[in-house]
């Protein structure tokens, strides 16, 4: 099995601060590999353990990606192919870049996290599948079987579970329930520093970038708790609370 795992670097969201006066986020924070990408890597590693083969981590991101991608290698990916330069980031461009990298090789299985924890857009797997003209199985909570050029998965949808079969090659996106990603030990981290990272440039890939979106504003929502004080006569207070409770539920 030749498995590609498309991963995403995101801002370390827990560290993103909001300027109280202007409600603007401060984005000068370290980046990290998205947790859902780690579920995808973990699944790829488990498939490799069972079926043999190679796991290649693929990603397109900022200059920091050279560092971030090491997390994927430390987890156990064999090598990585990345674009690590600043470009107009949107679903169209990233899908195009990933599919260009993917189409240079012949992968049996292409794994994604079902979305990314920052934007939760969930567009990447279907877009790449469409560009490669292969099927997709999204929101997979369990891969039941891989054999004879076919894959069977259980999907976790909003209202139902669904067992789905597809021919390989195929794009699969996984939920965070599918596994518990391993945490690399120091020896894995040291090993990762020697694994090959192929940095390709947008020039080499000959992608034409687009920019159909205009971000008008990106601010923290206002915390506007009413802070209404209720006190005084106990009977009155209780009555007021009951009113509020009745209104809200």
């Amino acid at each position: 099995m030749k498995i590609a795992v498309c991963v995403k670097e995101i801002y370390n969201l827990e560290q993103v601060k909001i300027i109280r006066e202007t409600r603007e986020p401060i984005l000068d924070v370290p980046k990290k590999l998205d947790d859902l990408s780690k579920n995808a890597i973990e699944e790829a590693l488990r498939i490799r353990e069972k079926h043999g083969g190679e796991v290649v981590a693929i990603s397109a991101g900022s200059k920091d990606l050279k560092k971030t991608i090491k997390e994927a290698l430390a987890m156990g990916a064999d090598r990585a192919i990345i674009v690590s330069e600043d470009f107009q980031s949107n679903a169209e461009n990233t899908a195009l870049i990933l599919s260009k990298i993917l189409s240079k090789d012949s992968f049996d299985l292409i794994l994604f996290g079902d979305a990314s924890s920052d934007e939760y857009s969930a567009q990447m797997a279907p877009r790449v599948a469409e560009l490669l003209r292969i099927p997709q199985i999204t929101y997979v909570r369990e891969i039941k079987e891989i054999s004879d050029g076919k894959i069977v998965c259980i999907r976790d949808m909003d209202y139902y579970y669904e067992t789905v079969e597809s021919n390989l090659p195929c794009v699969v996106s996984v939920t965070n329930e599918i596994n518990e990603p391993r945490i690399p030990a120091l020896k894995d981290i040291l090993k990762a520093s020697k694994k090959p990272v192929d940095v390709v440039s947008l020039n080499d890939l000959k992608v034409e970038l687009v920019n159909p979106y205009q971000i008008l504003e990106n601010l923290a929502p206002e915390i506007d708790r009413k802070q209404e004080v209720i006190q005084g006569d106990l009977k009155e207070v209780v009555k007021q609370i009951v009113e509020v409770i009745r209104r809200e539920i």
Binding site: R20, E21, T22
Partner: peptide
């Protein structure tokens, strides 16, 4: 002294 130097700033850490 400090209050006037820091007026309008937003504490971030």
């Amino acid at each position: 002294e400090l209050a006037s130097l820091l007026k309008g700033g937003s504490m971030i850490e």
